[in-house]
Simulated assay, not measured.
Amino acid sequence: MSPHAVVQAVAASPGHGFSKPLQPAIMLLAGLGVEGDAHMGVTVKHRSRVRADPTQPNLRQVHLIHGELLDELAGAGFRVGPGVMGENVTTRGIDLLGLPRGARLRIGPEAIVEITGLRNPCSQLDDYQRGLTAAVLGRNPDGSLIRKAGVMGVVLAGGRVAGGDRILVELPAPPHRALERV
């Protein structure tokens, strides 16, 4: 982990669209998520999950993507930037995908987000740009699927988050559990 991990950008949207417009700052609310965002709430807000069971706990209150992924995708010819793939927080200097379940991110002076799992890329990525879904998926040498479209988390402590805010990583006690899709 870099000692210089920061928030690159923040985004939120009250509607269930694909991309989220960039904001100067967002407010994280403990136990709920991003104030004013369509995915805010104690129970699931993702439409397909609501149809399956609307009483499920919302483990996807905050979506984070590492800005380095956006660089990789842009280098492959995709038109992507912060907020485009629906994330609330774009980071720099953190291997988000390498974090264990339960890792905590202290973002800015007050906010704490606990990582719950990996975002599962959906077909909306290809609706935005053909081939984007495949570009955020890979394979390990053993053939297992690698999901690169960011991580999801829940808000443990609220606070204002803005571009340039410092991020500190706190790992849970071992044994560490690898992230799975949520």
Rank of each mutant, 00 (worst) to 15 (best):
L69A: 06
M27L: 15
L64N: 04
A162F: 00
R79L: 12
P14K: 10
V169M: 03
L97Q: 14
S144W: 02
R119K: 12
I112S: 05
Q129G: 03
G86H: 09
S2Y: 01
E35R: 15
E72W: 01
V161I: 10
E72H: 12
G131H: 10
A76H: 13
A74R: 15
P3S: 10
P24S: 04
L29E: 15
K20N: 06
R106C: 11
A12C: 10
Q129Y: 03
V151G: 10
I115C: 04
N58T: 11
N120P: 07
T90E: 00
R177S: 14
P100L: 07
R49S: 05
V80E: 14
G163H: 08
G138P: 06
V6H: 06
S144E: 07
G150N: 05
A30H: 10
K45M: 11
N88S: 01
A135E: 03
G150P: 08
P24L: 00
H63K: 02
D165S: 12
E180D: 03
H63S: 10
I26C: 03
G131T: 09
G150W: 12
A178H: 14
R160V: 15
L156W: 02
G150E: 06
A178N: 12
V34G: 06
V113P: 02
L96D: 08
R49A: 13
T116D: 07
E72S: 13
M27C: 10
G33T: 02
S19K: 02
G108D: 01
A135P: 01
T91A: 09
G163P: 15
P24D: 11
Q8A: 14
G138Y: 01
A162L: 06
G83Y: 04
R49T: 02
L73M: 08
H39E: 06
H16V: 02
P54M: 02
S48H: 14
H39C: 01
G164M: 01
L118P: 07
L29G: 00
M40C: 14
G153T: 08
R181Q: 06
A103R: 11
A103Q: 03
E170I: 12
N88Y: 03
G131W: 10
F78N: 11
A9D: 12
D126T: 07
V7H: 00
G75I: 04
A173N: 11
L145Q: 15
R79V: 12
A38S: 10
I115M: 06
L64G: 05
L118H: 09
G15F: 14
V44I: 15
V42P: 00
K45D: 01
I65N: 07
V89R: 04
V113H: 00
A9Y: 05
G77C: 08
P109K: 13
Y128W: 07
L118N: 05
P14H: 13
S123I: 10
A135F: 00
M27G: 03
L96T: 13
R130D: 11
D95F: 03
V7T: 07
L28P: 10
G93F: 01
E72D: 15
L22S: 07
L132W: 08
Q124R: 15
G153Q: 06
D95M: 08
V44G: 09
R160S: 13
G163E: 00
K148I: 04
A5W: 01
V154E: 08
L22W: 03
A5M: 04
P21K: 03
G159S: 12
Q56D: 08
N140A: 11
D95W: 04
Q8V: 15
V113C: 09
F78Y: 15
V161W: 09
